[in-house]
Amino acid sequence: MTSPEPQNQRRRDTAALVVAAGLAVIAGVMLWDSARLADLGGYSGVGPASVPRVVAFGLLGLSLWTVIAALKGDFPERPAQNVPPVLWIIAGLAAQLLLLHVTGFSIATGVLFAFTARAFGKTNLAMTLPIGIVFAFAVWAVFSQLLMLHLPAGPLEHLLFPGA
């Protein structure tokens, strides 16, 4: 929560160094990609590769600046994190992504719903999973049948709306 005065923490910030490396990698990928573009600059001399190159050099510069800031310990203190809830949500999103076209919208989204509730303290999956599936099904019915959104249907949806 608190951010102590920067003077107190002149220590090396390894995580920030990783960020700097990530920025440099993105810049490298952009330069590599722009190199294979045919530069049809025409009259202007500025083609499709020019702006990506400028952005890449900007990112390289920022990466260098991040290294300096990391070595000086200029980054604000990071709040302590509870890792399991974060992983539950990521797992929920990943499960929905994988299940979406297999089980349809309602079941896949019900899993996401239950896992997110789990992350925020409702640990009883036997209760939250059915609630999530029923809720997601109601949402599916409203949005796909009334508002004509294309939401993937699965066995559950076909059972209750044979036309879907």
């Binding site: 509730a117 992350a119 939250t128 999530g132």
Partner: peptide
């Protein structure tokens, strides 16, 4: 309650 709130937010976000 927070669990239902955020579960709902993510449901509509992915929707």
């Amino acid at each position: 309650p927070k669990p239902w709130l955020y579960a709902g937010i993510l449901l509509f976000a992915t929707l």
